[in-house]
Design a protein around this nucleic acid. Structure first.
Lengths: 264, 264
DNA sequence: CGCGGGTTTGATAACTTTCAACCTACGTGG
DNA sequence: CCACGTAGGTTGAAAGTTATCAAACCCGCG
């Protein structure tokens, strides 16, 4: 586990703000980013804005940050100062209990927002770790709140983003609370498939960025169970698995695994 | 299951808004409520506001609504128009899948907010059902958003409320993903205890408003497992159980159940 | 070329569910 | 005011699912 030494940095050229950043910030670059030209905008910020409003937003999200694989964007306990939009790469968020228990609470890909957990207590309550070399937009939250008072649509959008996360969590609770191993894995694969598709990648062939252990943690299963379930899908001709490379042969067949009577 | 016939009502005397309300609204009363004099304000709205700001808020939250035990405040699919603050009583929220699976996603008591799930899609994604005769404050969301542009502190507070829900969901995911039956129940009891205490009730003696089945659904367990775990706690001298009446004898002993090595 | 992290697979154990019977409390109606 | 019906709760035994432990395997990388 990387320790949480902190360094202090300026986020961008406008000198708008400073943030505490964990160790991984050593690899920070001041990337030139701009919402106005971002091809992820439909995913990240699907609202109508005037040019003037977009300009203000560009100024706010002036800085980017690179995170190397295995390093953390923030860690539990770090002061909350910004939320992040994934530009490229892949993250996981996880929570650790004192006794060593770990729970992966989500996987985030391009266009998704990380860090919302920190708002309520001004401190992050989970770790966000890059599963591959990644880049994020840094969105200083205090400034975002200020901008919202000027841009109503933005305010409503933030609410939606927060609410969407709550709804997503509900379905994870449903998964963990009522499904058995193979159903959980099927749900997981379908979800990944759909998210890749939404980004223009193949819905049926992709690379898993996370280990079996991380999948298991997310799904409330042991890694052996994940492995067995994948093998079983493979035997059934539903998918092809080679290490982290997944090819789905029978999307419909996987969906069928989910329509059963309850059980936990 | 109550059906979802709808009736249209005016929420209050100022004619500010109308809401669609499910069947249970038949029992609606226009209650005189006011944040400025509410003794739940510390829980619900713990922020500094000027008298003028409070007056505006009072106008917004002008109407209340009574929900009889077993009836729903809203149901999945209902259009989202307001969030609700529990004034008195006790609610559960649950999600139903087509195949009959049900998952209780939370229990809400006085001072807590319900309905945040609806923001992201303009439609509620879960059912909110009263477990005893209850009253809620109806807070039309569009108007709340408007008021936020005038009151910065309110804006930030809404963000915190939404974020707090996300953090709460994280810990439920931790519970469902990593704990075994008795740990889950212990966590549940401690959580209830703490929330009752925060409202001035006894931390060690209280009445469960929900059935074993509902507890089980929330904890991802079958009702028999919940019953057995309670009996086991009882045998161990940790608690006293008589139907829905719980008396905790050894709060510390229950806490100790949680410090163990991981397992699922 | 060998090492090590990650993965697969098998056998066994542990936990939770399932099924079933029985019990308890509460509200309704005679 | 009491009897009875019913929803909710408890308990036991058996079955099923997943975890645990252990060994072997695969693959990329230094």
């Amino acid at each position: 586990m990387p320790q949480t030494k902190k360094i202090r940095i300026d986020t961008d050229q406008t000198g708008q703000n400073t943030v505490h950043a964990p160790m991984s910030a050593i690899n920070l670059n001041t990337l030139k980013v701009a919402c106005s030209h971002c091809n992820l905008r439909e995913l990240c910020l699907p609202i109508e804005l005037t040019n003037q409003e977009l300009t203000k937003l560009d100024a706010l999200v002036g800085a980017g940050r690179k995170i190397k694989r295995g390093q953390s964007l923030y860690r539990s306990g770090n002061p909350f100062e910004a939320i992040y939009a994934v530009r490229t790469g892949f993250f996981k968020t996880d929570v650790l209990l004192e006794d060593g228990r770990e729970q992966v609470t989500g996987f985030q890909m391009a266009g998704e927002i990380i860090g919302l957990d920190g708002i309520c207590s001004e401190v992050h309550t989970c770790n966000a770790i890059a599963l591959e070399d990644s880049e994020v937009c840094v969105i200083p939250f205090a400034m975002l709140e200020q901008l919202q008072t000027e841009i109503r649509a933005l305010q409503h959008h933030i609410h939606k983003v927060l609410s969407r996360e709550i709804v997503r969590d509900q379905s994870v609770m449903m998964l963990l609370g009522t499904m058995r191993a193979e159903e959980r894995l099927a749900t997981f694969l379908l979800n990944l498939s759909q998210r890749f598709a939404a980004r223009g990648y193949s819905a049926t062939e992709f690379h898993l960025r996370m280990t079996r252990d991380e999948i298991g943690s997310y799904l409330g299963l042991k890694l052996e169970t994940v492995s067995r379930a994948l093998s079983h899908f493979h035997e059934g001709g539903l998918i092809n698995v080679q290490q982290k490379h997944i090819r789905i042969h029978d999307l419909e067949g996987i969906r069928k695994l989910l329509s059963r009577q309850a059980s936990p």
